[in-house]
Each structure stands twice: as C-alpha cells, then as structure tokens.
Simulated scan of single mutants.
Amino acid sequence: MLEKSNKATTRERSLLAKTAFMRSLSANALATLLDSAQIVSLGARASIFREGENAQAFYCLLTGYVRLYRMGKDGRQADFRICGPGDIFAECLVPQDARYPYSAQAAENVCIARLDCREVRQLAERDATVSTALIMTLSEHLKATTDILVNDRLHTAPQRVADYLLDRCPVDAGSASIRLPFQKNLLAGMLGLAPEALSRAFSALRRAGVSVRGRVIQISDVKALREI
C-alpha cells in the first residue's frame, strides 16, 4: 500500500498537465483528472505496487525514476522498463478490473500521481480524448517493447550499451562526456543485462575509447564507438 497521498499542488498540476498523456486531453477531461489525481512521495526502494495485487490505479511519474519488474520462481528479478519523469505506467489495466501483472518500485526518491482506473474508464466512455490518449500511450509502449525485444535478439551486450550511449551522445564525431541519470544497476536492467554483464560490456568498450567513472561516461572517439 502507498503512503498517505495528497491533492496536487499548483506545481504538481503543472507537471502533470505537461505530460504526453495529459496534453492531448480535452479541457474538461484534463481538469477532472488534475482535480482527482492523488500525489504520493516515496523514498528509494519503496514499493508502489506488487505483482498480483488488485489494480485500482495507474500512475504518472512526476520526478525521479521507477523500475518495473517481474520476479521469477527462484526470487530473481527482471527489469523490463525504467520509467522517467512524465512516463505513465500500469495504464494497460484501465479497461478492466484486474491484477497488476508486474511490480513497480521507486528507484530513488520519487513523486507520482495516482489516477483511479475506474474513474478514468468512466471518463473515457464520455470523452473520446481520454480513450484516444490511452490508445496512443499503449501503442507507444507496445512499439518500445518490440524495439527492446528486437534489440535483445540482434545485439550483443556491448552493442546495446554502445547504442544507449550513442543515442544520448551530443556529437557525431570526436570526444564526448555523458552523465547517466541513474545508477548503473538501473541501466543494466533497462538494457536487459545483469550488473556483471554490464560491467563486462563496459570493459569490452574500452577498445573504442569508453571509460567509466561513477555515473560519468567518457567517450574518446564517438566514430569508433559507432563501429562496434
């Protein structure tokens, strides 16, 4: 269960209204959801919901990062998505009463908006912009999941890390410096790697001029990294 929640402040309403999901809503639907949203602040490693619990709400992340994961019979956890500010998660459960098919945990201190599934479902029946926003969000998540599956099948661990770095590289050639927005164990989960596999991948990328110091990644030759 989540800790005590509060109505959104002016600042939190502004953050929520700017998210991709909320931007496409009608004025009436937006006002309704901003008024009903419950804001919860959680510390690092706090549970938001657990796999198998009754799904009463879905969430919009305002600040921080959240990991979504499944747990195997042996207790091992497999991250399949890392959510950042503005991301929606568990919206797939809005159309019907169900149980959460995975768990969500705060990766660091987070602020999230809790949106009631039944209320949003009823609102979607009255306002097409809500149902359209849900469809668009689900479509984007399906595409992202497909990309992840293809990437896992076609790319080695060093290539996955290289692709992540290059997507965030500020230059096409020469040297660059990138600071990870979160701890490396979260990056490992995002890329479908065990932490030790991520360490080996970074070691393999040294020949392309990649060095790691904490969260800061130095790339001495961006062009060489593209050839991995």
Results as ranks from 00 to 15, higher is better:
residue 8 A to M: 07
residue 10 T to G: 03
residue 12 E to L: 10
residue 16 L to E: 06
residue 17 A to I: 07
residue 17 A to M: 03
residue 19 T to Y: 10
residue 21 F to C: 04
residue 25 L to N: 02
residue 30 L to P: 00
residue 33 L to K: 05
residue 36 S to D: 14
residue 43 G to H: 11
residue 45 R to S: 14
residue 47 S to A: 13
residue 50 R to F: 04
residue 51 E to S: 13
residue 52 G to T: 04
residue 69 Y to T: 00
residue 70 R to D: 11
residue 74 D to W: 08
residue 75 G to C: 08
residue 87 D to Y: 09
residue 90 A to Q: 08
residue 91 E to H: 11
residue 102 Y to W: 09
residue 106 A to S: 13
residue 110 V to P: 00
residue 110 V to S: 09
residue 112 I to Y: 04
residue 112 I to H: 03
residue 113 A to T: 02
residue 115 L to E: 06
residue 115 L to P: 00
residue 119 E to G: 14
residue 121 R to W: 13
residue 125 E to L: 15
residue 127 D to M: 02
residue 128 A to N: 09
residue 129 T to R: 01
residue 129 T to V: 00
residue 136 M to N: 14
residue 137 T to N: 15
residue 143 K to Y: 12
residue 144 A to Y: 01
residue 147 D to E: 15
residue 150 V to A: 13
residue 150 V to I: 14
residue 157 A to I: 05
residue 165 L to P: 01
residue 165 L to Q: 05
residue 195 P to E: 09
residue 196 E to K: 09
residue 198 L to R: 01
residue 200 R to G: 00
residue 200 R to A: 10
residue 201 A to K: 03
residue 202 F to M: 04
residue 206 R to G: 13
residue 207 R to Q: 13
residue 210 V to Y: 06
residue 210 V to S: 07
residue 212 V to Q: 08
residue 213 R to K: 13
residue 214 G to Y: 04
residue 219 I to H: 02
residue 221 D to T: 06
residue 222 V to C: 05
residue 222 V to G: 06
residue 227 E to T: 11
